[in-house]
Design a protein around this nucleic acid. Structure first.
Ligand SMILES: NC(=O)c1ccc[n+]([C@@H]2O[C@H](COP(=O)([O-])OP(=O)(O)OC[C@H]3O[C@@H](n4cnc5c(N)ncnc54)[C@H](O)[C@@H]3O)[C@@H](O)[C@H]2O)c1
Ligand SMILES: NC(=O)c1ccc[n+]([C@@H]2O[C@H](COP(=O)([O-])OP(=O)(O)OC[C@H]3O[C@@H](n4cnc5c(N)ncnc54)[C@H](O)[C@@H]3O)[C@@H](O)[C@H]2O)c1
Lengths: 209, 209
DNA sequence: TGAGTGTTGATATTCAATTCACAATATAAG
DNA sequence: CTTATATTGTGAATTGAATATCAACACTCA
């Protein structure tokens, strides 16, 4: 029985664990029960050694003849990255990107769901948009506290980014996934992930030339 | 006068250069002409040393008293990551995500633009969607060859991913930015970037717990 | 049985990225 | 002029990530 100690895993490993699980779900769906490191590696463009190393880090052991038991591995990855009772997420800024994200994400994961959105456009608030309830931004603090929300996805207009981020921090949010083109800085102890397609495209443009 | 030799820069540095430039554009807009490494670092959550190191790698020198000249720095970054005559990009899969991306990206960069989209839904093809012309997927090969397109953004449904990727490679695409939830593998020499919000959210969920 | 094959798990090594530490330099203040 | 302060640029050290290597084991087949 694994103790519930906090494993200090490399960030890259966490990302790969999430992806392993996604692929393993598909494999289960196709009727596979076991998988070898080289199979998993191939599907993810990695080396088998790297796969084994990641699994070693989380303390999972396979068998030399049958490889890894998919069901068990998925369960263990869940134990590592999911929180016990699930985590609810909110999204702020129900525009084009916000809608694309919520409709994509809905129902993707058991323990992780976008439960509510917030906007300041009265056209969008007070009703269901893209499958989830959209409230007015003025209600955000109360909601976050009451529902104990820890993670927010930020997809508001660039101008609103700083204000909204401040509200989120005030309300007690612990992790922000920022998609606006405005870089944020957050206090110690708050986790921030940012992503921008422009950066990816410029990198690609550099690489292909 | 910098020779046009191909600098072998670390991938991480390329990404940061793209972000530096974004921030520097804003600074210019606010009337700033010079900037210190620690200012830039603060805006990007980096250390000043890292900023200086990156700029050193591209061969830019500042002054001890005035820091870096923003205009010149932006120009040099452009020289490194932009291609001389600009690069045109296509997007495949004009759904929710595709529309969010095209409307966001349009006009963002001089040398980089999404010029056309492709889809197999006859509702969407043959007209302008989200600001750009959307053609039928069957025309993609011809278009890519004729217009010498090198980079494609992939936002089709998961089921279509492999087929469409194959078409793109056949047509001679050299870089793919894959947003579908289906991991791709590409031949040697082709550049691939993938991003999935689920991975980011699961990483955040792990970090905040 | 016993050689041959293919796999895992772990240690060692290499490679890449970041940070440290400080010399060199410019400016301002006394 | 001299000292104090702030900055850049960079070699060296450190940290982090990926890869190579190989012993140990399990299975197959002759
Ligand atoms: N990271 C990426 O790759 C990427 C891609 C596309 C868009 N973006 C960025 O994401 C953001 C959203 O893009 P979009 O295309 O959905 O834009 P959009 O204009 O369609 O959506 C913005 C939404 O934010 C809401 N909003 C504005 N101010 C608000 C406030 N103070 N409080 C609450 N809600 C507020 C608006 O009502 C709107 O619904 C923009 O900042 C854009 O730059 C990033
Ligand atoms: N990476 C992420 O963070 C992220 C976020 C949202 C969605 N997604 C993924 O992006 C993709 C698009 O999401 P969406 O919400 O826009 O879905 P969507 O269904 O709205 O859009 C898919 C589009 O692809 C088109 N398409 C389907 N098959 C095609 C084919 N063979 N050739 C050309 N076009 C074809 C459809 O007509 C549709 O317009 C999905 O694969 C989804 O899983 C990823």
């Amino acid at each position: 029985m694994a103790k519930n100690t906090y494993l200090e895993l490399p960030g890259k490993t966490i990302e790969r664990l999430s992806q392993y699980r996604r692929i393993l779900y598909n494999s289960i769906h196709e009727g596979k029960t076991n998988i070898y490191s080289h199979e998993l590696a191939k599907m993810m463009n990695l080396t088998p050694v790297q796969v084994r190393r990641d699994l070693m880090l989380i303390g999972y052991s396979g068998s030399q003849s049958k490889g890894y038991v998919i069901k068990d591995l998925v369960a263990l990855i869940g134990k590592i990255i999911d929180s016990e009772k699930g985590q609810d997420i909110i999204l702020v800024g129900m525009g084009n990107l916000g809608r694309a994200i919520t409709s994509y994400f809905s129902g993707k994961r058991d323990k992780l769901s976008i439960v509510s959105a917030f906007d300041n456009d009265l056209q969008k608030t007070g009703r269901i948009v893209a499958g989830i309830p959209c409230h007015h931004i003025s209600q955000i603090k109360e909601f976050v506290k009451k529902e104990n929300i820890q993670i927010a996805v930020l997809t508001v207009s660039p101008e609103a980014t700083h204000d909204v981020a401040k509200m989120l921090l005030d309300a007690g949010i612990r992790g922000i996934l920022n998609y606006t083109s405005v870089p944020l800085t957050v206090p110690e102890g708050i986790h921030l992930e940012e992503y921008d397609i422009v950066t990816s495209l410029e990198k690609l443009a550099y690489l292909v030339k």
